[in-house]
Amino acid sequence: MMRALPWICLAALAAAPLVGLGNYPLHMLIQVLLWGFVYTGWSIMGRLGLVSFGHGAFLGIGAYVVVMLWNAYGVSPWIGLPIALALTAVVAFVIGYPCFRFKIVGHYFALVTLALSEIARMLIVALRDHTGGSLGVTPKTALTESAYSLVALQFSSKLVWFYIVLAVWLGGLWVWKKMDRSMARLALEAISQEEDAAGSIGINVTRLKLGVTLISALMTCVGGALYAQYQAYVNPDSVAGIGISLQMVFGVIAGGMYVRLGPTVGAAFTLLLAESLRLMFGNSLHALDSTIYGLMLVLFIIFMPKGILGGALEAVKGKKAASPDVQRA
């Protein structure tokens, strides 16, 4: 029964849009799964003590490279995405290698990566002749004659997007599980706690950390590309810079980064919170919603540092923490 439960939930989730879920709830669901995937990607690093504020850069690369290649040269996202992934890998390596090689951790790592995402944002703005600057850009539509274009990765039906995103999200969970099981994961736990000790028992710390960073960055890049294609619009602030990077981390913290579904729960929570605050106050007072949102984030981190799902699981399991061995990074 307990083993079947996840499959039943999944089946229910997959069937939900078919039984007349409205357009708006479907949109929210897609957003939750998409961001849940991105947050999961972030957590793969974050739970090992690699707190990156630089994922805004990877998101931005995914979104902009794909859109720019399509708009300027008519390159299909199917080719654009691998190019974006390659670029992401290079950037992740250039940042990650010196950091890990020279054991730049904690605050340093966070600040370096924070600067990275901000530089990505500035580059997008600086290249305004090609990117549209801070006004953003829309992928040229390929939907003039039909409702979908596989080549352009554009679909007018939300249903198609839902299943694409669902599959990608499941892929993210699979990656998480795979890493959980692999030896590398065990080794990394050792690193996050006792880096020198891990090094002395013959684990190549730098290579393992780089591997994890690469996987995490690539997932984020995919998320960025999908986001741009789904929304059919991106601007520098929504896919790069400090704001979105912090937002990712907040979402993860809110959900709990040490459990597999934590990041997704966080995505659902932050999106629903932002959305309901926006609906409540959006039209009457500008920015009241985000003010409350910011305040709640602060309170959240102070009073519920393990996140909703992490905290809930801990409460259920009593003293036995969800994953106590990785709590201290």
Binding site: V51, H107, G294, L297, V298, I301, I302
Partner: peptide, 13 residues
């Protein structure tokens, strides 16, 4: 780090 990041959001908004 994050809690001051939250303050950043809050002050901006």
């Amino acid at each position: 780090l994050l809690v001051t990041g939250g303050v950043l959001f809050f002050l901006q908004a």
